[in-house]
Design a protein around this nucleic acid. Structure first.
Lengths: 238, 238
DNA sequence: CGAGTGATTGAGGATGCTCAAACCACGTGG
DNA sequence: CCACGTGGTTTGAGCATCCTCAATCACTCG
């Protein structure tokens, strides 16, 4: 399928592209890739000849300590660019795993040169996306460093819910994460994560549903976390 | 002073620039700015017409919760670019404060357009720097989320020491941070931070010296943290 | 000298961890 | 059909880590 009629390009969070830009992005595209739930897309330490944009499904970026402790760094949803680090620096310093069945749009790393040479607008967009990722990481860091267990959990669920809804997903759709993922994102043990989630569920903020979390009162969660949504302006989609 | 004879450009971590690039960066430069220790360079929520490169001194980026809890996100050392978020998105989502007297190189935000249009190599470098910042944040997140108090503290001190030494600073130079900064970086209370630092000091890994921390055995600290230095390749300096 | 900043220490309590055991839904093979 | 294994959730108990409160100390500055 061509980029011109890529379905996610029409979703609300993305800004429209110039025909010339679209045409180049299309030529830059090498194909599509389907990844199974639970499969690893990119591995820390490896170098990759490709970058990807998520077309559908969820994934997560993580790092591990040698003894197996795992920290989830962030989640990738449709429209998010992954593998940029490998694209720029050659080596990945984190791994990426599919949380659901994934469809990825594959780009050749070598195309970046031409992109920067001939499409300054797109080059700017790549930087913009990197900067947005940094912003999300800043928020996560604030959360893990300084929020209490309840606040931290509320923040994670509210922000994932917001990102999901922004893409046009139904507000009551289930976030495709297990409690183990929540634990590894927030830096808690699985037991304590469960107890915290139960509190939120008992008070009616969330429901733990078929293999995931349904957010029932996202505004209340955001208030618990002292968090307010930011930066809802249109963003580029490479 | 012109960029051509900028002293930090000759330091080991930075890659050499083409004369044409150097000339443009020089024309892009709007002046220098001196900031006092403890002064705020950029404030969350504000928009700024400028980007900065640190010429000398240390600063830190942080976010705060409304009730005053503070999380330090990262440190900026000579050669680091700050204010890129404001430069790209218009608004800063974090604040920056000077840890020592700072000298900054000031760039006009509006110059970014021309940079991307006419200097694809530099544009690539800006993205590269954003990506490097993301990498540092990933490491911090892993640390705060999954390392124990001793490991976490060891990681912070070893990595700051490594960044400092890479710039040509004497290995026994003092890191210009207070225990409050360490606490706000690692997500600990000041009391527990003190107790952890004392353990490291008693075992001879560090000394707490005139207003800062002297790292005595950086290799041992890195081993405690299960951390290994990465990515020592030359980097760009805008 | 008195005030302010940052480091240090002890005590007691809150938060989050590990260990251990169930439980549930699901799919597999006998 | 049912026994069994698996992955994920749930709960209790006891312990380790980390927090808050409170006080003290060393040092600098006006």
């Amino acid at each position: 399928m061509g980029c011109v009629d890529c379905p996610i390009r029409k979703l609300p969070p993305f800004r429209p592209f110039e025909p010339a830009e679209l045409e180049f992005v299309n030529s830059f595209k090498r194909g599509e890739l389907a990844v199974d739930r639970g499969a690893t897309v990119l591995v820390e330490g490896n170098s990759s000849a490709h970058l990807y944009t998520v077309l559908s499904g969820w994934a997560f970026r993580y790092k591990m300590l040698e003894d197996g402790r795992r920290q989830i760094l962030n989640y990738a949803l449709p429209g998010d660019l992954i593998g940029l680090q490998a694209g720029l620096m050659g080596v990945m310093e984190h791994s990426i795993e599919a949380l659901t069945p994934l469809r990825l749009c594959v780009f050749e790393r070598s195309g970046m040169d031409e992109l920067y040479r001939n499409y300054p607008g797109l080059a700017f967009d790549v930087t913009w996306l990197a900067s947005r990722e940094e912003q999300l990481l800043d928020e996560n860091l604030l959360s893990i460093g300084r929020r209490s267990a309840i606040e931290r959990t509320a923040y994670l669920l509210a922000s994932l819910h917001a990102r999901s809804v922004a893409l046009g997903t139904a507000p009551k759709a289930v976030l495709p994460i297990s409690q183990q993922h929540v634990a590894d994102t927030l830096g808690f043990s699985i037991v304590h994560t469960n107890k915290t989630l139960r509190k939120l569920a008992i008070q009616g903020y969330i429901e733990w549903a078929e293999g995931g979390c349904r957010v029932v009162r996202s505004g209340a969660l955001a208030r618990i976390a002292h968090w307010e949504q930011v930066n809802t302006r249109k963003r580029p989609l490479i």
